[in-house]
Design a protein around this nucleic acid. Sequence first.
DNA 1: ACAAAAAAACAAGCATGAATGTTTGTTTGG
DNA 2: CCAAACAAACATTCATGCTTGTTTTTTTGT
Lengths: 218, 218
Amino acid sequence: MERNLKSAQTRARLVDATIRCIVKFGYANTITSKIAAEAGMSRGAMLHHYEFGSALIKATIVELHERRIRAFRRASNTVSHDPATMVREYWRQLQKPAFVAFHELALAARTSKDLARILHPLEIDYRERFMKEAVELFPEWHADRKSLQVAMTLSQTLLEGMAIKVHTGSMDQKMIEPMLRLVERELYVMNPDLKIRHDAEATVLKGAAKARTKSDRY
Amino acid sequence: MERNLKSAQTRARLVDATIRCIVKFGYANTITSKIAAEAGMSRGAMLHHYEFGSALIKATIVELHERRIRAFRRASNTVSHDPATMVREYWRQLQKPAFVAFHELALAARTSKDLARILHPLEIDYRERFMKEAVELFPEWHADRKSLQVAMTLSQTLLEGMAIKVHTGSMDQKMIEPMLRLVERELYVMNPDLKIRHDAEATVLKGAAKARTKSDRY
DNA sequence: ACAAAAAAACAAGCATGAATGTTTGTTTGG
DNA sequence: CCAAACAAACATTCATGCTTGTTTTTTTGT
C-alpha cells in the first residue's frame, strides 16, 4: 500500500507536469524530456512509471476529464442556483490551465486516431453528465427540455468560444465583461420560470425608454 | 513577367497544398515532405520556391488572412442586409478548410513566438476591418456602437465556437440548427431599428397583460 | 532566326539535430 | 537482500536544410 501510494504520487506529479507542459509549450511541443524536467526527475525515471509517452498522455487526458467534471459540478453544486453566479463560476474554471490543455488535446485528436479513441468516449460521457446535471439544476425547465438544452449549449459554446479567443489573442479583453452579462441575461430570459417576472419588469422599463425616445426626437 | 507568373502559380499550388495538409494532418504533423507530395512536386523543388519551411507557412498564413477577409466581405456584401442570411453565409464559410487551418495556426501561435509575430498583426487588422464593415452595414446601429460591437462579437464567437466544437466532435449535430436560429433571433432583437418595431409589438401585448393584471386585482 | 549561354525549375542524396524507446547501471527503502 | 525507483548512455528513426546534379525555359549574340 505504501509502495503503491508513493508510486501513485509520482504518477500524479508526472500528470501535473504534463498538463503544465501542454499549457506552456503546446501539445505538439510537449516532449518527454521536458515533462521529466518539469516533474523534477530523469527521463528514465519517468519511463519507469509510464512505459511509453503515449501512456502518460492517456493518463493526462483521463485526469483532465475528471477535473472537467468536477469543475462543472462545483459550478452547479456549491453556489446558489442563480444563473449569473453559475456563469461567473464556469468562466472562472475556463481560465484554468486544465481547459487550455484540454482544448489542445481536443484539437490534436482531430487528426490523431490514437487520441480520438481516448477522447471521444469521454466527450460523450461529459455531454451526458452535463445535461443530466442541468436537468436536476433547473426543475422549472422540465416542461421544455429542448429549450433547456439550447440554453446550456449556448452558454457552454459561447463561454468556451470566448476562452479560446482570449487565449489565442483574438478577442478584445474589453468585450469579456459585456459578453458575460449577455450570457447571464440570455439565461435569465430563456428560463421559463424567471421569464414571467422578467416580462413584468420589462413593462415598467418600456415606459421609460419610450419617454426618452420621444424627447430625443426634438 | 511570364516567368514571374509561372513561379507565382507554383507558389500558390504550394500554399494550397499546405492548407490541405494542415486540415488533413494538423499543423504539428504538416511536414515539408507531405506538402511537396500533396503539391505533386519534389521537396527540392519546393525548397527552391520557399527557402525554408517557415517561409511557406508564413505565406500560407497571409493567404488564409486574405481569404478570411474576402469571406466576411462576401457574407456582408453580396447578400441582402438581412441578418438571418448573413448568419447562414458566415456559418457556411466556417465549414471551409480555410477556417480549420486558420484555427490550427492560431492555436499553434499561442506557444510559438514566430507564428505569433506573423498572426498577431493580422488578427488586429481583421478585427478593425470586421467592425468597420459592420458599422457600414448597419447604419441604424450608429447611435449605439457599443451595442453593435457586442452583437458582432456574440455572433462571431458563438458561430466560431460552434464550428470548433463541431470539428472536434464535441457538439451534437442536432443542436446546430437551433443554435443558428438563436443567433438570428438575437441579432434581430438587439438591432435598435428592428427593436422599435419589436418593442411596439411588445407594448401591445403588454397592454393586454396589464389589463389582465389590473382586472385580476379585483 | 537560331544556336549558345544563362537562369530558373525541378529532383535526389547527404549530414545534422532532435525525439523516442531500449538497455544497462546505480541508489534506496522495506 | 531484493525489488522498486531513479539515472545515464545508446541506437533508431525522422524531419530539416543544404548541396549537388539534371532538365526545362528564357535570354542573348550574331
